[in-house]
């Protein structure tokens, strides 16, 4: 796509160039937004892995504070460490051992990491395109201004 647009960019009229640049910028915004959302999702899985580390047989029956909301905690004790419930999406939960759950989280983290990388290269590609279009646009406007000045004198 990049080479294709590169070829015809020079032949586009100014208003279309502007529209193209706006479209590219819009796409860039969208991708950047997706990227930060992916990062947030990935961090959630990283946090879950961290939390999973304390679900060990050594910690059984130990006192814990269970968060009811972000600011309200209730006293409890760790009753069971051999399985955890994992939310796998669309309302399904699966009972897994902590090891399996860790595998699941690792898988998710690397999956999101791969996607982040792909998005990153997409974003830098988009930015390059925007830069190219901007340069052509500026050159075009400059040329138009130079053309318009002698034209105004003659008429």
């Amino acid at each position: 796509m990049s080479t294709g647009s590169q070829v015809n960019v020079a032949s586009l009229p100014i208003d279309q160039l502007q529209a193209l640049r706006e479209q590219l910028q819009e796409e860039d915004r969208f991708l950047t937004n997706s990227y930060s959302q992916l990062k947030i999702a990935q961090n959630k899985f990283v946090d879950s892995r961290e939390a999973l580390k304390v679900i060990t047989p050594e910690n059984i029956d130990k006192d814990i504070l269970v968060p009811m909301t972000s600011s309200l905690y209730v006293k409890g004790s760790l009753a069971k460490t051999d399985t955890v419930l994992v939310d796998i999406g669309t309302g399904y939960y699966v009972e897994k051992t902590p090891e399996e759950a860790d595998d699941y989280l690792k898988r998710k983290i690397s999956y999101l990491g791969d996607n982040c990388e792909k998005l990153e290269s997409n974003i830098s590609e988009k930015r390059k395109n925007i830069e190219a279009v901007t340069m052509v646009l500026q050159a075009r406007i400059r040329a138009m201004n130079e053309q318009a000045q002698p034209g105004a004198k003659s008429s």
């Binding site: 796998i88 999406g89 309302g91 939960y93 699966v94 009972e95």
Partner: peptide
Amino acid sequence: ENNMVLDELKLIDGGAVYKLV
């Protein structure tokens, strides 16, 4: 999302499955 859930469901062996209703 559903594809990911399906992949996960295929991977489980023996673990119980719950649906949030």
